[in-house]
């Protein structure tokens, strides 16, 4: 039998129970989108931001193209302010899954020493994330970029298409999105234009966690509770173990069991107090959570409609 080399892989696996129909439907839809974009575009790339959504996205990409390799590179925009555990996790995954990983940091931001503390979260995000992303996409001449955004994250995301059309300067025009009927996606663009594709559009946070559990997907340990140092600042629990961290006058560095519901730049990502050290614990906590996952994100609270504004400018 000529596919024996691939059978080996499947036989190694212990038999796991079939996915429940709801997750199976979401998985099927995501795989369909991956394949469609890979077939229609010349130079796709996948944004890999190391968090739980990216981890699910990566897993789905491997499934979509199995038994082949993922036929496009992964792009990580490194702001220089990511948790070190994220970076080591990223490198481990790249090695384990033989990924074609591209890492980009905005050279202008590096030179000007852009920092969320001295320049503020808005400017930091503009330069180190949005501008950096535009640079990397232009440099790679990518015409399609996968992202792990979900519609349940935020009100302007809830409005976004699965194929989200971008102008040559990466702008999103929420008032003139292309109609997107059935699962027939319009991938026709002119040179310089591009599409952001969101295979996880219809997933919720709970779906992500239940899928991670069902599929045994590896995650950075930051999602699980551990004793970590932090301070309370502006109602947010800020991680305080980096050497660039400076306590403000009157701030107490505390140590307790905390974890993160989303991962980003550590000065902008709030932790929650938690003793959830396993996946089961995390899901149990989530099911009774009374605040949304983005509550810990400084970027969303800067101003009303701030996500839409950033997206119009080319943010993912």
């Amino acid at each position: 039998m000529h596919i024996s080399e691939f059978d080996a892989h499947t036989q190694d696996k212990q038999v796991k129970p079939p996915l429940d129909p709801h997750l199976k439907a979401l998985e099927n839809e995501a795989i369909h989108i991956f394949r469609e974009v890979a077939a229609e575009f010349e130079r796709p790339v996948m944004l890999y931001s190391i968090g739980k959504d990216s981890s699910v996205l990566l897993h789905l990409a491997r499934k979509a193209f199995y038994p082949g390799r993922i036929p496009f590179p992964l792009l990580h925009i490194d702001t220089g302010w990511k948790f070190p555990e994220m970076i080591s996790f990223r490198d481990e995954m790249a090695k384990r899954f033989d990924l074609d990983l591209v890492v980009h940091t905005n050279p202008r931001g590096l030179k000007e020493n852009i920092s969320p503390f001295t320049h503020g979260s808005a400017l930091h995000t503009d330069i180190m994330k949005t501008e950096a992303l535009r640079q990397a996409l232009d440099a790679g001449q990518y015409d399609a970029a996968f992202g792990g955004a979900r519609r349940d994250e935020e009100a302007s995301r809830a409005k976004e298409r699965i194929y989200s059309f971008r102008t040559p300067d990466h702008k999103w025009d929420p008032r003139n999105q292309r109609p997107e009927l059935w699962n027939v996606y319009n991938g026709m663009i002119r040179r310089g234009e591009s599409v952001r594709a969101f295979p996880l559009s219809n997933w919720t946070e709970v779906d992500i966690w239940r899928y991670i559990q069902a599929e045994n997907i590896p995650l950075p340990p930051l999602y699980y509770a551990a004793k970590r140092k932090f301070v309370e600042r502006d109602g947010m629990l800020m991680w305080a173990e980096d050497k660039r961290f400076e306590a403000l006058p009157g701030e107490q560095i505390q140590e307790d069991y905390i974890r993160f519901r989303t991962l980003g730049c550590w000065p902008l990502t709030g932790a929650i107090k938690s003793h959830a050290t396993t996946l089961d614990d995390v899901i149990a906590e989530l099911e009774i959570a009374t605040v949304s996952e983005r509550q810990g994100r400084a970027i969303d609270r800067d101003q009303a409609g701030s996500m839409e504004k950033k997206k119009r400018e080319g943010y993912f």
Partner: peptide
């Protein structure tokens, strides 16, 4: 109605998906 234009005009412009 999560878009700024929608909030300003008090109407829905594009479809919103919710779960």
């Amino acid at each position: 109605d999560g878009l700024q234009a929608e909030r300003e005009q008090g109407i829905t412009i594009d479809v919103a998906y919710r779960y």
